[in-house]
């Protein structure tokens, strides 16, 4: 609740010039990612990642613990969004990254 109030307050006082994340892949869940995942840090922290669903779940759990204002539904939607759009590029394990 507090978190929500806060977002309203910040949003009203300082309308972002150009919202970060305008270039995020447009898919279901993108609005919540854009709104919530920019509160404490840059989106680059997440757009750098290519993680499996289970790791994304851990990440979003941690962010909620840190104070990300997310409902259970948001959590579900964001994990979906991230694991589809920022999932592993290739799943085969190679023991050594021969360039």
């Amino acid at each position: 609740m507090l978190g929500l109030l806060w977002i309203v307050f910040v949003g009203a006082s300082f309308p972002p010039l150009q919202q970060e994340g305008d270039d995020l892949p447009d898919a279901s869940g993108v609005e919540r990612v854009r709104d919530v995942c920019t509160l404490c840090h840059s989106l680059k922290l997440l757009t750098q990642q290519r993680l499996s669903r289970s790791v994304w779940e851990e990440v979003v759990d941690d962010m909620m613990e840190y104070g990300a204002p997310l409902s259970a539904q948001d959590h579900h939607d964001i994990v979906d969004y991230l694991s589809i759009n920022f999932g592993p590029e290739d799943t085969a394990y190679t023991h050594s990254p021969i360039p």
């Binding site: 949003g11 150009q18 404490c40």
Partner: peptide, 30 residues
């Protein structure tokens, strides 16, 4: 109140960092 919540995104997120222009920006914030 979570102090960091005020570090709202801005248009400068992808700009290079003053004093460190030649470095790769993994994240501008932090």
């Amino acid at each position: 109140l979570p102090a960091g919540f005020v570090q709202r995104a801005s248009a400068s997120e992808s700009a290079s960092i003053p004093g460190k222009e030649l470095l790769i920006v993994r994240s501008p914030r932090p």
